[in-house]
Design a protein around this nucleic acid. Structure first.
Lengths: 211, 211
DNA sequence: ATTCATAATTATGAATGCAGAATTTTGAAT
DNA sequence: ATTCAAAATTCTGCATTCATAATTATGAAT
């Protein structure tokens, strides 16, 4: 009997993920051109899977393709950021409202656990960021809606292109945590409209902090 | 002085569009595997740009990639359809509400023109379908939100995978037109909440007809 | 020194080639 | 006729090669 062997992914998918990491880390800053040959050599593959990965990232909006010029990391304007926050607020608030009305006790307990991890990470920026994203994504996963999950995941990627991420502002973490507590309460109380309002507020404040 | 030369697109984009057409026309039915060699020869290109196009379609959700098996046209379940309609309702109703509050007289006039085309196409299924989609997409474009436009466009593509499209049900066209009239009135009256409600109802009825 | 035309270089776009996994075919044993 | 194993074939995944557009370098003319 073998260990659950991780489904091997296609190379282009791994490359896409690697590029995302580099983009989010601003190792590939917005506006910078992507030198196919350079990166392909760097990671020890041919250009073919790299170019396939770039097409994926372009469809996600992380890079922009210019004919005969190649790909550059998308520059996210303030307007873009505002629009992305608005969409995230709309989608995630609706999702939270729906989950509030249908979550099982086990699911609430799991979310409570993720929330507790968030509380514990309040003094660790990176950990808080990760715990925060995990909580948000888990809420979506519980709805078992792959389209919604995919859309929100893509939007969050774009949001992460922005250097001035709201959670990196001092004071914002504490505030964010407060909002999360309120959301957790609303979910536990199965209060859909409260959950919706909490998430709306959460993003509204997040945007204000990011601007 | 030269004629406005159409910005030549990359080959993989043209191929992606061609595949979308074939998928929507059910020339490539849901569940069918895509034979790269066969299609590449058929349209007279190599496999490389075709494979790039497939990655794009996979990211859009139109096809699914299986490692070492290739790509097959995504099968849209009833659950998927319900979820997609829900998301379209959420996104487009919000968009309509926003546009109602900020549309210029010129924009309302343009939409009125598109609506009139819809009225005129009531007895022509395909024309009605096209006019309907043009109206919906134009509303989004007027908000100048590329993220929203892209998401809705992708969701609509998935919706079109379904053979039993609501607009093909008899009686639905007339009903749909009524809903459009109400929306047009709400937009012209700059009544955001009415516009939102109209679009919500439009999709709710559309889903009911599609199920 | 600056500018412009031309040559050299570089990088992208697309075709071709190749290794190996997955599928199909073949044929012997029952 | 059916089943099953092995050989043959097909098809995908990735690397390599080639063609050409875009960029940079060169150098003569002003």
């Amino acid at each position: 009997m073998s260990l659950p062997t991780f489904a091997p992914r296609a190379l282009y998918q791994d490359v896409a993920e690697l590029l995302r990491q580099r983009i989010f880390a601003h190792q590939l800053p917005p506006g910078s051109w992507i030198d196919e040959l350079k990166i392909a050599e760097e990671i020890g593959i041919s250009r073919t899977p790299l170019r396939e990965a770039l097409k994926v990232l372009a469809t996600e909006g992380l890079v922009t393709m210019k004919l005969r010029r190649g790909a550059y990391v998308t520059e996210v304007s303030q307007k873009d950021l505002l629009q992305v926050y608005h969409l995230l607020a709309l989608l995630e608030s609706d999702a939270s409202a729906e989950l509030a009305s249908k979550a099982s006790a086990e699911q609430i307990a799991e979310l409570q656990g993720l929330h507790d991890a968030l509380e514990a990470a309040v003094h660790e920026r990176d950990a808080f960021f990760i715990a925060n994203e995990r909580f948000h994504m888990r809420v979506l996963e519980m709805l078992d809606n792959k389209w919604l999950s995919q859309m929100v995941a893509d939007l969050r990627k774009v949001m992460k292109l922005n250097r001035h991420n709201s959670l990196f502002k001092s004071g914002r973490i504490e505030e964010s945590l407060q909002e999360h507590r309120a959301l957790m309460r609303a979910l536990a109380a199965q209060d859909s409209s409260a959950a919706r309002a909490c998430v709306m507020l959460h993003f509204k404040n997040g945007l204000a902090a990011a601007s």
